[in-house]
Design a protein around this nucleic acid. Structure first.
Lengths: 163, 163
DNA sequence: GCGTACAGCGCAATATCATTGCTCCCTGTC
DNA sequence: GACAGGGAGCAATGATATTGCGCTGTACGC
């Protein structure tokens, strides 16, 4: 009677070891499998099989190096609250498509049910930032832009808490 | 005449190969060194030495698995604009210290020169979200909270564009 | 020009790691 | 009590990471 595992939801089969694996890989995505296995108290093969399963099920979506923006010449990170002229799906999609092509826009979240977006952007310097803001403002779909300059960052953890 | 390399700034010694390495590792942080070397057109040892140098110089800050929040039970990602009662440094630091201990708060950025913060949070469900918002509002330093519910995310790239 | 210092590459050797196939054990069922 | 399924560990094999070393091109001082 284990229909618990039959659910299509992701969370079904995450036991304590799986969670530990996720926590470790979230903290250090390049850890070797041997080290990971040691930390979670398994031998290497079953540990690797679990990792592969987590990847295949999409619970682990990928691995990324975390680069220092300043070292790469991006001195400024800022957010922008953008309001569109219309809430028509076509307009929203056009805007999203546009910012998707824009490398300086790193995130684009629709908020409050449509017509408003929160963007995270990076810029090389103030001039660059102004240029980006202007480009946003100039876009035909855009009604208003409010930029939120980041002064300092007290916490910046990617991902989610793993119990 | 390569005094270009003498500068102490971070960007000093990033040549084209370094940038390629960074781009590859940002896209796939678990790529093997052999594969990475092949892609950037080096043999494995010098490639590894470059990666190590980038790590030591802090240009690569780390590697992280990218986990699916929904799979881990966090159905909701939202942002909060928080205004504090005061801009005194002690108050700001107290607030930052508090949210740092708060696992559901993943990011905390000070904006507009003090007194205001932009937070990114995750919540298991609406009730959890409300509880978090209430906890924020109830904090003694906090004057006002505006939550920005994420409806959908058109783009969510970690990191920065690499040339 | 010519030798030297140095940076940075590739090769080759070795230690580690990843991956696979197989067996064993525990658990729930009938 | 026999059986099926899930999941662990062991051991073997192929790949990868890591180190030491020699080679080469370039900047520089003489």
């Amino acid at each position: 009677m284990k229909h618990e595992r039959m659910r299509t939801e992701p969370e079904q089969s995450l036991d304590e070891v799986d969670r530990q694996i996720l926590a470790e890989l979230q903290a250090d995505g390049r850890m070797t499998n041997v080290e990971l296995a040691r930390r979670v108290g398994l031998s290497a093969p079953p540990c690797l099989r679990r990792v592969r399963r987590l990847e295949e099920e999409g619970i682990i979506r990928g691995y990324h190096a975390d680069l220092d923006p300043v070292a790469l010449g991006y001195e400024i990170t800022f957010f922008a609250l953008v309001g569109l002229e219309s809430q028509k799906e076509a307009v929203l999609a056009t805007f999203e498509g546009a910012v998707r092509e824009w490398p300086e826009v790193r995130e684009c979240h629709m908020i409050r049910g449509g017509g408003d977006f929160l963007l995270r952007l990076v810029a090389r310097d103030t001039a660059h930032e102004n240029a980006l803001t202007s480009r946003l403002t100039a876009a035909p779909e855009v009604a208003r832009v409010q930029t939120l300059q980041t002064i300092r960052t007290a916490k910046d953890e990617a991902g989610v808490p793993v119990s």
